[in-house]
Simulated scan of single mutants.
Amino acid sequence: MSAAAADDGPWLDEAAGRLVRPFTASDGRTRPTVALDLMTQVMATGATPLGYLGPEHAQALDRCRAPVPVAEVAAHLALPVAVTKVLLSDLVDRGALTTEPPAVHHHPTDRALLEAVLDALRRQL
């Protein structure tokens, strides 16, 4: 076990990965209270959310200092999008986040846009 893994405590195992199911971060909830899609932009309002928030909420809020799409927050947290949407909607409900529609000026089925996305994905692999 590496030093980094030892610091993570019992919740992360180097060989197995995350030992806690992702849906525990959202208390088992799978439906957000706010309509969010993958490209919805979320941004911190600067308000301190009331009530207890888990570490994933804090990480998501920290990631949203500048406008960022929901998909990017999910990737950064390494959580399923469904879980991330619930966490983000909790933060919106508490006034800590605001949302905006996607900043896409192209039609979502525009061939050039889809090819650009495919090219970017291929570069990542």
Rank of each mutant, 00 (worst) to 15 (best):
P69K: 06
L91Q: 07
A96H: 04
A75R: 15
A96G: 10
A96W: 02
A78N: 14
L88D: 03
V73C: 02
A71E: 14
P102F: 00
L77E: 05
L87Y: 09
T98K: 12
T99C: 13
T98C: 12
H76F: 13
R94V: 10
A71V: 13
S89R: 06
L97P: 03
L79W: 01
T98M: 12
V73N: 04
L88F: 03
L87R: 01
A74V: 11
T98D: 13
V73Y: 02
A75E: 14
A74G: 11
E72W: 12
T84Q: 05
R94D: 12
G95Q: 11
P80I: 11
P69L: 03
L79R: 15
L91A: 03
T99Y: 01
V83D: 00
T84H: 07
T99A: 09
A78Y: 06
P101T: 05
A75L: 14
L79V: 05
P102N: 02
E72N: 10
V70P: 00
K85E: 13
L97D: 00
E72A: 15
D93F: 10
P101H: 08
V86W: 01
V83F: 08
L87T: 07
P69Y: 07
T98A: 15
V92K: 02
K85R: 15
L79H: 09
V68Q: 07
A82N: 11
E100C: 11
R94C: 12
E72P: 00
L87P: 04
A78R: 15
V70S: 00
P80K: 10
S89D: 02
T84K: 04
V70D: 01
P67E: 04
A71P: 02
D90M: 12
K85N: 09
A74P: 09
K85I: 03
L97M: 05
V92D: 05
V86G: 00
P80W: 10
P101R: 10
V86E: 07
V70Y: 00
G95P: 00
P69G: 07
D90V: 10
V81S: 13
